[in-house]
Design a protein around this nucleic acid. Structure first.
Lengths: 120, 120
DNA sequence: CGTCAACATAGACGTATGTCGAAGTCCTTG
DNA sequence: CAAGGACTTCGACATACGTCTATGTTGACG
């Protein structure tokens, strides 16, 4: 356990991109519902959603924790939420020197977007 | 408390439709993050997501509980999940005779879709 | 009016979640 | 090598959640 960050781990994602047709197009199979529900669960906390939005909208497409950690909770809690988002496959992280940078995993975002796409 | 179903109640929704620009466009304000997180939370359970998809894709745009209740959990649990989805503003319900019909609230779906829209 | 079917509510129970303070890891810099 | 900053991990805690069985409520129909 002396090794450092796993760097990446997209358990849910896999191929969430071409995962699912729009939810209005047909009943979602069980397996897909579990994968997609895990993604939505990652966004189901206000603090987590704000962290995600800050990273997604950050110039350069990435942000270090120090850039986004003023969200009203303690720093360990921020770290905990970022871990959840990473484990869900919504973010990837990379350490560069002193700082750890997070960026959005485009395929995961695309998967959710596609599922919730409205007919027109 | 002898009255029947409230029929509708869109607490979160309100104007979730024109709520938020894409998450990639800027940091989400606290209030918006709370409203949108509540919507995602409603979809964060596999059973609930499947119920929602069944209603969303049902011919005529609506479905009675009897049409969709075979999702592997007990009938009260189905009822509980539908209530959660309704309270979140994702569904509306209407009793007609013996059956209760659920349909998707388009504005709520549109709000989430818009928030998760990808740049492309 | 009695009965049945469709659905909702109540209550209980185990588990998951969000939060914090304290302590640990890892890298930089003097 | 010592010190400090940037994060993460650990352990504890209160609360929320998903599920069930049992019980209500509501409307249709004989």
């Amino acid at each position: 356990m002396s090794k450092s960050l796993p760097v990446v781990e997209l358990p849910v994602l896999q191929d969430a991109a071409q995962c699912c047709p729009p939810i209005t197009a047909g009943a979602l199979p069980v397996a897909d519902s579990e994968r997609m529900a895990a993604l939505f669960k990652a966004l189901s906390d206000p603090v987590r959603l704000r962290l995600f939005s800050r990273i997604a909208s950050h110039p350069g497409g990435e942000a270090c924790v120090c850039d986004i950690q003023d969200v009203g909770v303690s720093q360990p809690t921020v770290s905990h939420h970022l871990k959840k988002l990473r484990e869900a496959g919504l973010l990837t992280s990379q350490r560069r020197g002193t700082w750890v940078y997070y960026r959005v995993e485009p395929a995961a975002l695309a998967g959710m977007s596609q599922l919730l796409a409205v007919p027109s």
